[in-house]
Simulated scan of single mutants.
Amino acid sequence: MKIAFIINDHKTEKANYTTPALGYAAYKRGHDVYFIGVGELSYASKGHLSVRSKTINGKKFNSQETYFNALQKEDFSTITSEELDVLFLRNNPADEINERDWAQNAAFIFGEIAMNNGVIVLNHPKSLAGAVNKMYFQHFPEILRPKTIISRDHQEIKDFFKKQKQKMILKPLQGSGGTNVFMMDKKNEHNLTQTIDAIARDGFVIAQEYLKEASKGDTRLFLMNGKPLKVNGKYAIMQRINASNDIRSNIHAGGKPAAVKMTDQIMELADIVRPKLVQDGMFLVGIDIVGDKLMEINVFSPGGINVISQMYDEDFATPIIEAIEKKVYYKSMYSNYLFNSRLATL
């Protein structure tokens, strides 16, 4: 099959990221693999997607790093949606905030064009467009979520702070990777107004109850087709331990990964989120868990597959590509009878 991955930018994509791991797994299985930066997307006059991409063929590599580094040195070539079987949207819109605002929604828009041209687009672009900020998380059952308000009203946020016994988390509605996340308590209450102002400059503020279990970090679990990703009895799951004196557990923010066992509680949380993820066509998702609550659902570019693969000495990337191969097969059998949103999670 011909599979393309949309990334934010070739200049910022690193060889040890999850998307290159997926691309390398597809390459090893003999597929034609293309990497496309958001800025390389275009719409052709004939009504199809036309992109400048980087690809490599006919060579053997010993690791995803040597593969991706070699691919990055290749010149750009052009491919259209008429030639592609699969377009995997792996860019993170939050990384574009205040930098390239035009790029935040581009992948969804062009993804819909590719979908209309018969390309399987993962995750489903229409659902991704609706999940571009953390409000998407609020559509899942309340039992899963910490107590939360979303507002720009200072007094409403301060009242919530009092109800939470003067301890809460503040973060922006848009964003990821632990950017602009603050823990407010009695010690820094004097900075509350200033902190709200700083976040509110770029939009709405999320005020969320502080979970004491968060001091130990969080648990990242990958879901594929709505179910926990599992290989040879091992789950794609890891604990992300906070860096010293930092409430953020994101690996890019200094958090440290560690092995962790699957529990009945985590399985129950995963089972509750499954129906909506399946309905929305969310093929590959990362859920972040603290205690008995979900803190975040990453539907754009959840990272850590390469880290987890090394941690458990298992290849978690190849089963993801195998699942995509099945979708291409199903589409060939049913032609245009299966909607992209349903095909995405079959």
Rank of each mutant, 00 (worst) to 15 (best):
I241C: 01
V260T: 15
A258L: 13
N242F: 00
I247E: 00
K256S: 11
Y210Q: 07
K212H: 12
T263E: 13
L211A: 01
I251T: 07
V231Y: 12
D264P: 07
D246G: 04
E209W: 08
R240P: 02
M262G: 09
S244L: 09
I251N: 01
K212A: 12
F222I: 12
N250H: 01
R220A: 09
N242G: 10
M238H: 13
A258R: 13
G255R: 02
A253Q: 08
K234D: 10
I247M: 10
A258Y: 10
K216Q: 15
A243V: 04
K256L: 11
I206S: 03
K234G: 01
I241S: 04
M224Q: 06
E213K: 11
K256M: 05
N245Q: 13
K227Y: 00
N242S: 03
L223S: 13
N225K: 05
F204M: 09
T263S: 15
S249R: 02
D218L: 08
E213W: 00
K230I: 05
A214I: 12
I251F: 05
F222V: 03
M238W: 11
A236I: 10
L221A: 11
Y235Q: 12
A214F: 01
R240F: 09
S249Q: 00
Q208M: 05
S244A: 13
K230A: 03
M262Y: 11
F222K: 11
A214E: 05
L221M: 14
S244E: 12
H252D: 00
G233Y: 06
K216F: 14
L223C: 08
T219N: 03
L229W: 05
R240I: 07
H252C: 11
D264G: 11
V260A: 08
V231F: 06
V205M: 07
V205K: 04
G255I: 07
A207C: 05
G254Q: 01
V260E: 04
H252E: 04
L223N: 02
Y235M: 08
Y210M: 14
A207F: 07
A207D: 02
